[in-house]
Amino acid sequence: MDLVSLIGTILAFLVIIVGTLLKGSSVDALLNPAAFVIVICGTLAALLVQTPGAVLKRALAMLPMVYRPPQHQPANLISRIVGWSEISRRQGLLGLESQIDAESDRFVGKGLQLLVDGTEPEALRGVMEVELETREHSDLLAARVFENAGTYAPTMGIIGAVMGLMAVMQNLADPGKLGHGIAAAFVATIYGVGLANLLMLPMAARLKGMIQKQTQMREILIEGLVSIAEGENPRQIEAKLQGFTP
């Protein structure tokens, strides 16, 4: 569990609640079913119209990564690649066959399989780079779902506020309802702007950062596997791959 992200999410809700209290209002003022339906359901409806089902499914699958991010450890990966290089020098490429089944990452397993099969270095690089670009594109599309939600939510909030004001205008003859009605109208704006800037947009940025790190890890892997296929010395491979790390 990533405590920083969890604390940030909790703080986002506290900011709205405490800010409301400090402004002299009450928490009950934030509870508005109509605003919830307009902003949350409206944003979801817009996403469903825009987003293919497969992309939406991938986005939902990536959501837990915000709070349970995958571990990106370039030094550990480089150490493993150097170990594979040493095995290949002692036992040949077929000596790496036992390493394939031990890999839980399908991308790593595919690269090792191509290496064991004796694929030419440039052909191996080409196959793996196509796989890399495809995965990166798919993941970025999924991350943009949250970015798009952050775009639609404030607009839905404005729609909710306008609809609330329309209801207020219909009750001008009853001054006692005006204050409550206007306050309720702007709750939708709080929902929309808060959802976008405290949750959706930060989540999208966080996921994009993770995708970038994952891409870097895969680039290290590709370069390492190609170097093994070319028969480079393990120490040379290690020195080359160290260039990917700060």
Rank of each mutant, 00 (worst) to 15 (best):
I228S: 09
L22I: 02
G126V: 02
G231R: 05
V116I: 13
F13G: 12
L47V: 04
S5F: 10
G209V: 11
M156Y: 07
I78P: 10
V4P: 03
Y67L: 05
I10Y: 11
L207F: 12
E147R: 09
G181V: 10
G111I: 14
F107P: 13
V187C: 10
A123F: 12
M210D: 14
A205S: 13
F107S: 13
T189L: 01
A46Q: 00
G209D: 11
L14E: 03
G8R: 06
A153M: 03
L30F: 03
A123C: 05
A59Q: 00
D174N: 12
L124I: 15
V49N: 00
Q99E: 14
S79E: 11
A161M: 01
F107G: 14
E136M: 05
Y152P: 02
D28Q: 13
Q242V: 09
N171S: 15
L30R: 02
L3T: 14
M217Y: 05
Q91W: 09
T151G: 05
L11M: 15
R206N: 13
V82M: 04
K208I: 00
V226C: 12
R90Y: 02
L241K: 11
I159Y: 00
L198R: 05
E103R: 14
K23G: 15
K208S: 08
G231S: 04
G194H: 03
A142R: 02
G192E: 11
A149Y: 01
M62C: 02
G179D: 10
G231Q: 06
P70W: 10
L30K: 01
R89H: 11
T245M: 12
A123W: 08
Y67T: 03
V18G: 00
T155I: 07
V168S: 05
Q242A: 13
T151Y: 10
E86K: 14
K57E: 00
L178T: 10
G176C: 04
G19H: 09
P52S: 08
P246L: 08
A142E: 03
I87M: 08
L94N: 13
L93C: 01
I7T: 14
L112K: 04
T9A: 15
V226M: 08
G19R: 07
A45R: 07
A61S: 12
Y67S: 05
Q113R: 15
G111H: 14
I158G: 02
T119M: 07
G231F: 04
L115Y: 12
V168K: 06
P69R: 02
E219A: 06
A29E: 11
G92T: 10
P154R: 04
I17M: 11
L112I: 07
R58S: 13
L31K: 09
A102T: 13
F13D: 04
A239W: 13
A149N: 03
A143K: 03
I16H: 07
M217Q: 14
E122L: 11
L47R: 04
P234C: 09
Q170F: 02
L172A: 06
